[in-house]
């Protein structure tokens, strides 16, 4: 069978097995987080943080400390910088976000260009899942464990924070704490995603699965499961496709994610375009009948 062959062939290579497993894990983690990003309206924030971690990653390379630590410092630092500039000037938030993350990203580019020997720019920008080292795999597993456990423990509080922070505050929940938890997880997930799809595309991992699931469900637990399923599917299929067409792995993963989103947008049973247009037709027909 060609299909069996299609799935079996890449598995002859150890690096492909690793790549598929790691990208699936990253898919789960980023997708889980993407539900909160979508609901909180943090897509732009995700974009900002994922770009802003770049100098942190480079500095961590140089200092030979875990990338996650450097990313974490710069990810959270960028958001503090955004908050500070916003509160001290008259500039609007989206402008501040655009300004800060490009500034951090540019700093990262400069740093990389000056220390070429130890860091490969293309790996940071576009990911290097096929050549991922065992140390990086360990790091991804640790990040994933931290993120998933934190999300599981704080799920109810984070949902309430996204949904109704006024009520959350009025019953004494620590909103600032939840804000920084979500932000820290975002920085960590950006590092995990950086390995698979690279800094440029990591925001897709942190937004698209949540957006797809949002169109398919009206319950948070369903949304979470759908997002994770679509994330894993995209990661695995994307890695396979990239093997067969010999194309960019990160690119393939995000293209599959985007196609899933488009399918959901059109065919979603309740919130899809087809159903919506049918509903509005029914409405206009019933209007006409009256």
């Amino acid at each position: 069978m060609d299909l069996i062959q299609w799935f079996a062939a890449p598995l002859q290579h150890g690096f492909m097995i690793k790549a598929i497993l790691v990208s699936a894990l990253v898919g789960v983690v980023c997708s889980a987080l993407s539900c909160y990003m979508t609901l909180k309206g943090w897509a732009l924030m995700g974009d900002a943080v994922s770009h802003a971690v770049m100098p942190g990653v480079v500095i961590a390379y140089v200092l030979n400390i875990p990338l996650a630590v450097g990313a974490f410092v710069f990810g959270v630092g960028s958001v503090i910088a955004i908050g500070f500039i916003k509160s001290k000037t008259r500039i609007k938030e989206d402008t501040v976000i655009g300004l800060v993350f490009t500034g951090f990203f540019a700093l990262g580019l400069v740093l990389v260009s000056k220390i070429k020997s130890s860091v490969d720019l293309t790996h940071i920008l576009f990911g290097n899942i096929l050549g991922i080292s065992d140390a990086d795999i360990t790091q991804t597993v640790i990040i994933s464990a931290i993120t998933l456990v934190t999300l599981a423990i704080l799920q109810k509080d984070l949902i309430l924070f996204c949904f109704d922070s006024t009520h959350a505050r009025s019953i004494g929940l620590n909103i600032t704490f939840l804000y920084y938890v979500l932000l820290s997880l975002l920085s960590l997930a950006a590092v995990a995603g950086l390995q698979t799809v690279g800094i440029i595309l990591v925001v897709a991992m942190l937004v698209t699965p949540g957006a797809t699931a949002y169109l398919l469900s009206d319950r948070f637990d369903h949304m979470l499961l759908i997002a994770m399923a679509s994330g894993v599917f995209s990661s695995v299929m994307g890695t396979y496709i990239s093997y067969h067409i010999d194309g960019s792995t990160g690119g393939c993963i995000v293209v599959v994610q985007t196609l899933l989103f488009l399918a959901a947008m059109i065919f979603a049973p309740k919130h899809g375009l087809l159903v919506r247009s049918r509903n509005s037709q029914t409405v206009s027909e019933s209007d006409a009948n009256q």
Partner: peptide, 23 residues
């Protein structure tokens, strides 16, 4: 008072995200 759940608040409808996936 917050910690003792003393104050309950009913928000204006405009403040709520009605598309949020909760029942």
């Amino acid at each position: 008072a917050q910690k003792s759940n003393l104050v309950a608040y009913v928000p204006q409808s405009e403040e709520v995200d009605w598309n949020f996936p909760v029942s």
